[in-house]
Write a protein that binds this DNA or RNA. Structure first.
Length: 300
DNA sequence: AATGCATTTGAAGATTCCCG
DNA sequence: CGGGAATCTTCAAATGCATT
């Protein structure tokens, strides 16, 4: 990974967290009472930071900005009217599906489609939900392409961002028994490794051309209802009180922003190299497409 | 401007499982 | 058996865009 790439990813992932806390603060100011950590998410915008990062990669690879669509928030220089028309595509098992980044080629057909997912906290509640959604999206998009509902033969990418904390990293016990032996690959049963396996298998089975699985830790404490350290401390205190033990030591409590890849084959470098190759094929003249070519684009 | 629709991401409550 | 924790099922809050 080049220093430029590292900086770009770092900036986007840090913005992912600040967008969440900004949105939560804005909602509180408006008097909305949303529960738990969801307030920072329901306001939206956090994944837009990742979408913008990938949109930037697409432009750097040679796509004109006019051909790159994502849910740009108000004030984003890439925002334009009716933009949702362009990143919302017809679907097969449902009417429509909004993707996070869509890039069009000079024929007006999608040449790059990216789906983003993130998960922080509430892992056990939602891990399997996210897997269902991911697989469903993949099959749905492939069928829509097969049926010609979505034209062209686009490069498809899947991104999963999971929070890096003690819970997502800890290897818990797979409690579920099953009617038949589980795939031994799930012996490593952390939520993070489940995400990595999901991404790897989505690519292996050609549901997507590439996947990026990344973890990131949040820069600030999420509060007593969410922070794994505070929750763990509360559990220890409770246990000690029950058994008449002395008050347990305080756990070290600090939050530091960072991020890391989950594996080489699901890394940012692999992902963007693959995407860049596809865009270069669609725009062989490279960055700075001519005005005439830009005019041929839909919605331009 | 007002309303409806689709989408997204967590949370609540119920259930299951482990282990003493 | 029963307490406690992990997991599964269901669905709700909030937003933005399109339409009337």
């Amino acid at each position: 990974m080049t220093p430029d790439q590292h900086e770009a990813v770092t900036t986007a992932l840090f913005a992912f967290w600040t967008a969440r806390s900004d949105a939560a603060a804005a909602q509180q100011a408006k008097g909305n009472v949303d529960v738990g950590g969801r307030s920072g998410v329901t306001a939206g915008g956090h994944m837009d930071q990742i979408a913008r990062l990938l949109a930037g990669v697409a432009v750097a690879a040679g796509a004109p900005a006019e051909a790159v669509y994502y849910k740009a928030p108000t004030g984003d220089p890439n925002k334009r009217d009716k933009i949702a028309h362009r990143y919302t595509l017809p679907s097969y098992f449902r009417p429509t599906k909004s993707y996070d980044v869509v890039v069009y080629d000079t024929l007006g057909e999608p040449c790059v489609i990216v789906e983003l997912k993130s998960q922080s906290g509430s892992y056990s509640n939602n891990a399997n939900n996210r897997a269902e959604e991911a697989i469903g999206n993949a099959v749905d998009l492939q069928r829509a392409l097969d049926e010609g509902l979505v034209p062209g033969d686009p490069w498809t990418g899947y991104v999963f961002l999971i929070e890096d904390d003690d819970i997502s990293r800890a290897s818990g016990g797979a409690k579920d028994s099953a009617a038949f032996p589980r795939d031994p690959i799930f012996a490593d049963w952390t939520y993070q490794s489940r995400v990595r396996l999901l991404c790897q298998r989505l690519v292996e089975d050609e549901h997507y051309v590439a996947a990026w699985a990344v973890t990131t830790s949040r820069p600030e404490c999420a509060g007593e209802k969410i922070c794994p350290v505070i929750l763990q401390q509360a559990r220890l205190d409770k246990e000690a009180a029950k058994k008449g033990w002395p008050t347990p030591e305080r756990l070290p409590h600090e939050h530091r922003f960072d991020w890391s890849e989950m594996s080489q084959d699901t890394g940012f470098v692999q992902f963007t190299a693959s995407m860049t190759a596809r865009i270069r094929a669609a725009y062989p003249q490279g960055p700075g497409a001519t005005a005439a070519e830009q005019l041929a684009l839909p919605g331009a």
